[in-house]
Structures are given as C-alpha cells and as structure tokens.
Design a protein around this nucleic acid. Structure first.
Lengths: 212, 212, 212, 212
DNA sequence: CATGAATGAGCCTTCATTCAT
DNA sequence: TATGAATGAAGGCTCATTCAT
C-alpha cells in the first residue's frame, strides 16, 4: 500500500501525525492552557495557520493527542482480558513486561501527566480514558485475579485492589520520572522496579523467619 | 485595645489563609493557567483587587498554595525518619495510617495533582517538593527498610524500590480519586487499600500452596 | 488669631499646605498620571484616606498644586505692570532679578514642567496659567518696552517679541535644570545667565569693531 | 518577485513608521501614562494587537517616538559643529534658519514637550537627548562663539551662555505654541522671532542715544 | 495547500476612591 | 478627624483564530 508515493517529500499524509507528535511534547511540558499553538507549529515545522488545515481548534489537537494514548493500548487491555488460565505469576509478568515496553517506547508518561493535570478542564477526556482504558484494564486484571483466587492460587482479598497494587509502582515511577527527575531526582530503574515488585507482590518482603 | 473589636466580619489576619484555601480549590480544578483570579477572589469572598493586598502576583498565590502542602508534612517525614527499631510491620502500618489520615483530612490530593501537572511550568516548585518531601520521605523509609534487612527481617532487594512499592497504591488511589472518580469511576476505599496492601506487601498474595 | 493653638502638634490647619507641597514634589517628578496618591500621602505623612478630607479628587490636588504657582506671582506681574517710567535697563534688571529670586526660592521650575507636560490633559489649567500669568506678564513687559520705544530709548521692533527674548533664557535654563541636570548635564548659573543676558540684550554681543 | 504586489493595502514595511507617527500624536497630547494603546492603534489604523507585532511594550513605542526626534537632527548638530570661520552673524542666521525649518516641518515641538514632561519617568531618554543633541549642539555653538571672541568679534562673556541666549526664544516660542496656543494664546510668528532676535542679540535693543 | 500578518476577546494587574472602624 | 483595608473600573498584554495572498 502507498506504493508509488512521492519518493522523498513524504508530505501531506504525515502532517497530522507530525502535528500531534509536536503537540504532545508541548502539551506534556506546559499543560493545555500554557501551551502555545505557535510553539506546536514551530516544533512541527509548519506555520500557525497550517494547524487549522488539519484541526478545528486547540482543543481538537489536545483531544487527538490524548486519544493517541488510548487506541494503541486497548489491544493490550483486551489481551489481558483473555485471562489465560496458567499460573497467575506468568500473567503478571506478562502484563507488567508489556507495560514496561509501552512506557519505554511511547510517550505514555507525558500523556498520563496531561490526563491527570487537565481532567478538571476536560472531563470528557478523563471519562474516555476511564471508560476505555482504566476501567477495562482494572476489570480484566481483577477478573484474572479472581479466577486465580477460585483456583486457590491467591489469598482472599479484593481483586480490584490487588490489581491496583500491581500497577501502582509502575505508574508512580513514571510520574516520578516526568515530574521530579527533570529537577534533579534520582530516577527509578523501571525494569528493576517491575522485577522486584512482582517478586514482592507474589511472596512478600518478609523473610521466612520474620513472619509471626 | 483590640478587645471587643472582632464582633463579626472576619479579621484581616485570616484573609491570606482564606485566599489560599480558595485558590487551592480553583487551581486544583483548573490548573494554574486556566484558573482565573476572579474565580479565586469570588470563592474567597473578596474582590479581585484584595488579592493583591496579600500576594504580589498570581504565581505568588500558586506558590503559597503548593507550599502549604509541604510544611504540615515535613513533621511526618521526620517522624518516619526516626525509624523506630521495632518490627518493620509496625512501622509500615504507622506510616501508612498516618498518610491515610493526612490524605483524608487535607487537600493533599489536589495539591499533588497541581505539582504533577505544573511541574513543567514551575520547576522550582517541583524541586522544593522533591527536596523537602519526596526525597526525605523516600530516604527515611529506605533507611528503615535497610535496617530491617540488616536485622534479617526483610529479604534482599533495593530498599528505595521497597519504599516506592509501599506508598504507590496510596498515591495512585488518590490520583484516581482526583482524576477519574469525578467522571464516574468507582472510588477505592483508601483504608481498605492500605490494609490489604500492607498484608500483601509483607507476606505476598500467593497462598502457601501456590508458591513454586 | 489662632492664639492659644496647640503648642506643638501644629496640625490641622497646615495639612492642606503640607499635602500640596508633597504633591508638588511627586507630580513634578512623575507627571499627573504616573503620580500615585499613596506616594503623595506617604510624603505628606498622612494616610491615603486623609487626602480626601481636604481634596475631592486627584485632579483637585493637581489643580491646587498648579494654582499655587500663580497667586504668589500675580503680584510681581502687577508690579511689572506698574511700568515705572525710568530707563528701561533698570526695569529689566528689576524684573529679572525678581524672577531669579522666585525661581530660586520657589518650586516654580517643577510647576512649569507640569504645566507644559500636562497642558494636553488639563487645558483649563493651561488656560488659567496663560490668562493670569503668561499673558499679563508678557503684556506688561511689552507695554513698558513700547513706552521706552516711544521715548526713543529702544529700537523699533515687536515689543511682545522683545519681552519673549527677555525671559526666554531664564525659562530655558530652568527647564534645562529640571530636565537634563538630573541626568548629568552641567547646570547653568542662573544669576550669571541673567546678568550676561541683560547686558547682551541691551547692547548686543558684537564688539564695536565687528558691527558692519 | 515582489513586483506588482503592493496594489493597495499599505505594506507591512510601513507599519512601524505609521505606528510611531500615530503614537507621537497621542503621546504629545496626553503624555506617556495617559496615552492609551487603543488610541494609538486606532489612529494608526490597526488593531491593538498589531502594535505588538512591531514593538515589545508601550515603553518601546515611546522610546521609538522620542528616538525619532534625535537621528534627523544630529546632522544639523554636526553642521553647526563645522563652525565655519566667517563672521559670526552669518553662522547664527544659518543655525537659526535651519532650526526654524526643522521646527516647522517636523513634530519636534511635541517631542520636546514629551522629553520635558517624561524626563522624570524615563531618565535614560533625557540622558540620550542630552548626550546626543543638547550637549553637542550647545558645545558646537559655544565653540564657534569662542572662536569669534578670539577673533575680537564678540565681547567677553561665557560662550555657553551666549549659545543658550541664542536658542532660547526659539525653544520658548515652540513650547508656547504647544502649551498655550491651543487654549487661546496669540502665537508667536517664529520667523519674525528669529529675525528680530538675531538683530537684537548682535547689536542690542538700545538705540545709540540710550546707551549710557 | 500554506503562510503569517492581523484581529479582538480575555485576563492579570494597578490604583483612585470609598467606608467601616 | 484619621486610618487603611477593600473595591472595581480601566488598561497593557497575550494568543487562539481568521483570512488575504
């Protein structure tokens, strides 16, 4: 597909994506209100007016940026939803490994910051994120955990809270990276966090001797 | 000779605190740039001009608001730093119980959202939060955990990551409450999260039988 | 009158004059619009609100200040109007000597600057100055010069222009002092200017030999 | 490839000059603080926002306006500095004739009013005017007069004061025109002022018979 | 399609004026 | 009288949006 397209000057078709990418960087750094369309345009290598050839308003660009973060991830959520029946540990490792990859290879961190910071100004964006990502993902994991509990694999307890416990350190280390590392904080080694977290979550941090 | 004066009409001395409280609500909802001084003034029950009797600029108000979140909490950090030598479980329960109280009785959630969302625009605020709260708190807990490792109470592993694991579910449930509950998400019961999290963290979520 | 008034604390009666004096300094330095009532109040040693016990508005204070410059000078104008019939040289020396005294002992310089600078915003002030000071003074001197011409003492020529020539160097040296001396200009020695000017005006600056 | 473009609609290149011209009128009439950017914009035929495409701030526009008054005149100053060695009378006539032309064909009067009126608020503007115009011009004329004194053409006396005497009636008649003529004063006929002033300055206003 | 000069609504900030004490 | 906290209208400045080219 797209065979025979202009050799170089791969122009027109890419513009919207280029703009969204530029906008992501600016929005993530400044937030919605403080981001200037001129900065976005400059970073995208186009004129201010050109933005309006592809988007109706600034909000429109913002929605496109935040929406970007969803589509590529719902697949992962669905995969998790296909709670494979093997031992839970395998599932957890799979899920977190996948998330670690996403987090490293996509600007999910910046988008997450935007969603948190602008949820008051754009409730419908928060709603979309919740309905399409947060809620399904939590639900899928809770379902898988519940199944493991039914199999006697996992102790009693609220499966939704277990799911929360599972992903929280990853989210917090991302927000830490976005928020405090730029001002001098020592970053967390995210793969190390995941590895240690899975072990701890599964078996606890107390030694055998310390358990009352 | 001030006796009998303060019959009604709140006194001047209270104004700054009232303004900061009003500003907290508006900034937390809108973010810095989208917050209008007129809204803050109205919510504080004063005129726009009155804000400038107590603060130099809008940024000044913002700094006061975010700074509010620090002072009342450094005491807690120092308490944690006094890593008492008893069994680690007691310390963790104490720390998280304290944090839960703080989170329930102060607007820390909103402030946290602001710090995350505006860290790009106010790096020095992020720096202060990191230097005075995040870093000391993480360090104090890591130290306590390290001591427990030395006592053979805790398994090997990075103590700073253990500290991160400890507080993350609390932070994420707060952000979840601030971000997604207003658009319909089912909130987490924070005390329940803490209770289950401590148990899981200490002893793992796997049943005896499920441990390979 | 005023016998038995408070020994020290010579308060009330002097307030308006103190305020006008303070206002003169501030208006002369900043101009009308840039002058702040708070500065005037502070300089007068009273509160902002107290200004309104003696004056209706800021304009009112300004008018009082500029009006100050007139009353003490109309007497001089009238004296000049009593164009004494002696030789013109005596009159000119008398007039300029008086003006030099006025200029040295009163803030006429600052007021002059204000009248020039604010004439566009306060036409009626310019009008009062013109009608009560500038026009009468020019007229009186022109009349005296005309009389001297009639006596054959002074060459033909427009008496009003002669009057202009007479006072101009004094005015310009005052404006020079107010405008450029504060930024480093070498001031003119006003008595020296007057002395040399009278001589030159009467007899010319050319030597006998140089006159064609 | 700009050929044929400027059909109608003034070109961008002209805007700054148009704005400065409009600003000159408004600043001269109102002074800096009382001048409204909206008035300047309207008079320049542009929107308020357009001003900021060419100038950073209101002060910036003001500086441009006042600076305008300097560049076109330094040439004249340098010409005066070329104090030609002929009889002084010729030089004086040349200088004053030139100044009369400048004053009639440029808005120097308004600018002068602004410099005087705003010297307290913009000392650096007063300084530039002094250093680049007032001081060189006075110096050049004083030098020429001193040379004439050395040639025995001019009586003893402070040459700088002679220079002051020379230009003062011109300056005062300009300020008179700007300040009092709009409120009904009879204007001075500036060429007549200059002609009479040169004659008087050179030879005095006393008749032969009246000189003691 | 693309540009960027131009617009004008909106907000932070100042300050003359008022008024409760 | 006197104070100074409080008000709110006004204006400088920004920036999303439009449109002539």
């Amino acid at each position: 597909m797209d065979v025979g397209a202009p050799k170089f000057r791969r122009r027109k078709a890419d513009r919207p994506a280029e703009i969204v990418q530029a906008a992501l960087a600016v929005f993530a750094e400044k937030g919605f209100a403080a981001a200037k369309l001129e900065d976005i345009a400059r970073r995208a290598g186009v004129s201010k007016g050109a933005l309006y050839l592809y988007f109706e308003t600034k909000e429109d660009i913002f929605r496109a940026v935040v929406g970007q973060g969803i589509a590529p991830n719902v697949g992962a959520v669905q995969a998790m939803a296909a709670a494979h029946p093997g031992p839970l540990a395998d599932l957890l490792r799979g899920v977190t490994a996948h998330l670690a990859t996403v987090v490293s290879h996509t600007p999910l961190g910046g988008v997450l910051k935007m969603v948190v910071g602008e949820s008051g100004n754009f409730p419908e964006i928060a709603r979309v994120w919740h309905d399409e990502l947060v809620s399904p993902a939590l639900g899928a994991m809770a379902t898988a955990i519940q199944a493991a509990q039914a199999r006697g694999e996992v102790k009693p307890g609220d499966p939704r809270i277990y799911a929360l416990q599972l992903i929280s350190p990853l989210l917090v280390s991302i927000l830490h990276r976005e928020t405090f590392v730029p001002v001098g904080a020592e970053p967390f080694d995210i793969p190390a966090v995941i590895a240690q977290h899975i072990d701890t979550l599964l078996c606890g941090l107390l030694t055998e001797g310390a358990r009352a």
